[in-house]
Design a protein around this nucleic acid. Structure first.
Lengths: 164, 164
DNA sequence: TATTGTTATACTCTATAACTATA
DNA sequence: TATAGTTATAGAGTATAACAATA
């Protein structure tokens, strides 16, 4: 384990101010007490591998979450996707158009609201996502290999208590 | 920062899910099993409040982590900062120049390596960071209010097992 | 009048190549 | 030759304002 000091780590011992000493090992004890810092570092670490493994599917993290949500919620609207995934409507337009032009999703008129459009995964899109979700799940297990299954489940639950 | 209204999907009437293509409530059960998704959502949730509370200090998350690391590691070099915080050297240059022009840090010659430059927080920078770190710590406690102190400590340790 | 989807656009963040000066 | 710092720049990600069609 890391050297966990007390609550508020103090500045390391400083030598002569005119000739600053070389730092042998960088102390990040304080930053490691911040949830935002740790969550972001952990997320970026996983996303780095995600980008590599999901590149063959032509899916980046946002594309993946959008496709997965459409797959599991046939007929979902763009507005609902934005609210669910915390995206802004203008940034979703090009993404949807790209997925449609690739033949992964279809846009069908909404049954009750003429303004809205229901989004549906095509058979091609569904087949792609079955593979993509398996790849993503495998990668995540690999990236969290230092955690026991119970620790992993605990971590997911605690993170959701922050943003949900 | 998102500016979406936190309004739930309409249709309070309880209809059968099989009544039509319209989605009543969006199911995100699968995405919630992914550590990358949850970690990113939690991080963004905290960072949103971070941006608001730290704006009076003129510090964004990266500025804050750089200043904090300099504060706790007097004489640290740019290269060490990049390795520690996972930044790219070209993206750190402007950031360091900005902090220096604001009088928050000083650049002193490295004692043993003529190529390197040691970074030091000025008294003004130190005073600012004492306040900024307190604000950040307070904000994080507030944002993780649903967690017990033990759960919070557990969460930090588990996240570090992923990226460290 | 309010909402869905859209266009245009600006701003920020991140990534890559190449240069300089020192080692 | 290798490394620290820098410059310039391209690409991706994220933000706001405003519009047309529909409720």
């Amino acid at each position: 384990m890391q050297n966990l000091k007390g609550k508020a780590p103090r500045t390391a011992s400083s030598k002569k101010p005119s000739a600053g000493p070389a730092v042998d090992k960088v102390d990040t004890a304080y930053l490691q007490t911040l949830m935002g810092y740790n969550a972001r570092r952990a997320a970026l670490s996983i996303i780095e591998l995600f980008l590599e493994r999901l590149a063959p599917y032509g899916l980046k993290p946002v594309d993946f979450s959008v496709m997965s949500t459409i797959q599991h919620n046939p007929g979902v609207t763009s507005r609902q996707l934005c609210a669910t995934l915390n995206l802004l409507p203008p940034n979703l337009v090009g993404l949807i158009q790209s997925l449609e032009s690739r033949g992964l999703i279809e846009r069908k008129p909404h049954p009750h609201d003429g303004r809205a459009v229901g989004l549906h995964a095509t058979p091609k899109g569904q087949a792609l996502m079955v593979q993509a979700e398996q790849t993503a799940s495998d990668l995540e297990i690999e990236k969290t290999a230092k955690l026991t299954p119970i620790q992993r489940k605990t971590l997911l639950a605690l993170l959701q208590k922050i943003y949900l």
